[in-house]
Nucleic acid binder design. Structure first.
Lengths: 358, 358
DNA sequence: TTGTATGCGTTATCAG
DNA sequence: CTGATAACGCATACAA
């Protein structure tokens, strides 16, 4: 590893001059020196030492990306296609902009804080954080920060949240189910805060707009990590006769249910309709293909980086709460029932079915 | 951000003493001073500046993880559940050992080299590298390096490869198909090098052990990225009558085929048996659930880090070519045909079917 | 037991 | 146009 000092000595000039050439400040250097320096730069394949640069610049060129995860989901977090795509998008955009990505996955906020401070990262992207987590981080880390999919209150300034139109997405798919004639629609989630709560709001509004009342018994709320248990699934299996459709808050749960039910003789969608949320790889791969609410995860990642870098450059973002649109993705897991079926079960509002492909 | 110097001044002592306390060299410091320093350390929540530390130690505590990807797969790489799980496992292990992970995803090797050198990473984990890539990287980067799933020749020393018993895995699943009475077994892959070639070898050996000849027409080799094209799928659809089973080199291709065929009226496994490779999320989620070859991706990631850190600590690894075992995962995508069917189609060798769950 | 001095590689200031 | 020189934060050899 050759250093600036090495090269300066070899050429018998000062480190300043070499540094100037490296940074393209050629107006301050004679043409001849520039050429000599550039030659040796090439020859020895000089690569700057970022640690040293960070020290003088007080900037690391690192974007920290911190994922808060449940303890039991530790290793598996990125098995979830959503997180996989997100991290891929973040990495691509961060590197395209000349920064480096350092990821921390932990359920221990103070560990995240330590890492972020120790590396003096120029900016921070936070995924899966709750309100309190964010407050704690912000109290120690002062650089620009972007949240992804958080529903933190707006008391704290100097942050941007990049999220999803959860309410509208849930509204759209519930409305679709209603148009297909469904009246007993179960709502399945594993919590009632943040995104899932907002989705619940959309679900409820759609019902109300159709003159339907929210019924307590249609709300199927489990604790995180418990839906996949055999006992939960069995319970859902017994109760599913009460509904004609399940609206699930994630593709994962939808697929889980669908397979459990199908393996036990229930036909989807003939006997029961099911919808998901996210438009994951899974929802495409499964048969019947899942009707779901789509989001552009790649765009979400790209936008998060874009906003963050703007803030790093000292530009105040125009928006503080960016919400990406959702899209109703109609596939094969919902069928028309009752009146809607008799009238031919045609698509409402001219929405078109997606052509099938993995 | 408080520094050692700040604290030394506040206490009226030297930076050396503070530094010693921080590093637990308390034998060299009086009990009283230790306490004073520790108090201020806590109070001001001191966090070391790694850039500065890297500079003096000539070690960054960073493990670089570089993924080589096809240009068109750029962003989507981690959508693949395999890479998702792998990166999760790597990150967890790296951090548990007190290091930091920096990821680079690129199809440009020189970019990867630049990044690795610029950060002076202590060790490097390489995924998806071809032989030439590895040679190039090694010519400039001298620190310990671990390959994952590479089939590079052994000329270069100072590296460990963590891979899979591809040959045995392919042998096992082909043998299983043979026992189930299949004779016309197509082999589907998108290349004929590295892992896929080794799998081909296993496939061939199983046929030979059953006294069967490899037939040219049973080899379905496409170019990378072309299998998913409509034209390729159509071709496979037309040709599939010639076979009773497809052995695919990845779960992804198996699921792709299965859905394409099923959507066109072919029943799986009644009309056609299909097997995959990897035991991905997808293979579990799909119906019929996929019979496949399983591997422990999390363990693979953990082992890679383990070997790398050993080398960083100056310990010569006991093995240079670690191959993790595979496991035959029997689910529902293969049925018994011919004689095997008549004799009841029972499982060979007492292998048991896995109970179904997502 | 504690302190001084030096160097790691880079950049920036300022004087020549 | 060029070059000393100091500074970033930390660790360590050596001196006291």
């Amino acid at each position: 590893m050759i250093t600036i000092k090495d090269m300066a000595e070899m050429l018998g000039i000062s480190t300043t001059t070499v540094s100037n050439v490296i940074h393209g400040k050629t107006s301050e250097v004679s043409q001849k020196t520039v050429e000599r320096v550039e030659k040796i730069l090439e020859e020895y394949e000089y690569v700057p030492n970022i640690s040293a640069r960070s020290l003088t610049q007080n900037s690391s060129k690192i974007i920290g990306v911190a994922f808060k995860c449940r303890k039991d989901k530790y290793i598996n977090l990125f098995t979830d296609p959503f997180f996989g795509e997100l991290i891929g998008a973040l990495e691509a955009e961060i590197r395209a902009r000349g920064y480096f990505m350092m990821t921390y996955t932990s359920n221990d906020i103070s560990e995240i804080i330590r890492n972020v401070l120790t590396w003096n990262v120029d900016g921070l992207i936070l995924v899966g954080m709750l309100h309190d987590d964010f407050i704690r981080i912000k109290s120690r880390y002062k650089n620009p920060t972007v949240l992804i999919d958080s529903y933190a209150p707006r008391e704290i300034m100097n942050y941007v949240n990049v999220g999803l139109e959860d309410e509208e997405g849930a509204y759209a798919i519930t409305r679709y189910l209603l148009k297909m004639g469904h009246r007993k629609i179960a709502f399945l989630a594993d919590n009632m805060e943040g995104a899932d709560y907002t989705r619940y709001l959309g679900y409820q509004r759609a019902l109300a707009d159709s003159g339907l009342e929210m019924e307590e018994e249609n709300l199927l709320i489990f604790h995180p990590g418990t839906v996949e248990r055999e006992s939960s699934l069995r319970e859902l299996y017994y109760r599913c006769k009460n509904y004609t459709a399940f609206m699930c808050c994630s593709d994962y749960y939808a697929v889980l249910l669908m397979n459990y039910f199908m393996d036990r003789g229930i036909r989807i969608p003939e006997d029961l309709s099911i919808t998901g949320f996210d438009n994951n790889l899974m929802s495409r791969v499964v048969r019947p293909a899942l009707t779901t609410v789509g989001q552009d995860v790649t765009k979400k990642g790209r936008l998060a980086v874009e906003y963050l870098l703007k803030m790093i450059d000292g530009i105040e973002p125009a928006e503080w709460d960016v919400k990406l649109p959702t899209e109703l993705v109609i596939r094969d897991s919902v069928r028309a029932v009752g009146q809607a079926a008799e009238s031919g079960g045609e698509m409402p509002d001219g929405e078109e079915r997606e052509s099938r492909a993995v």
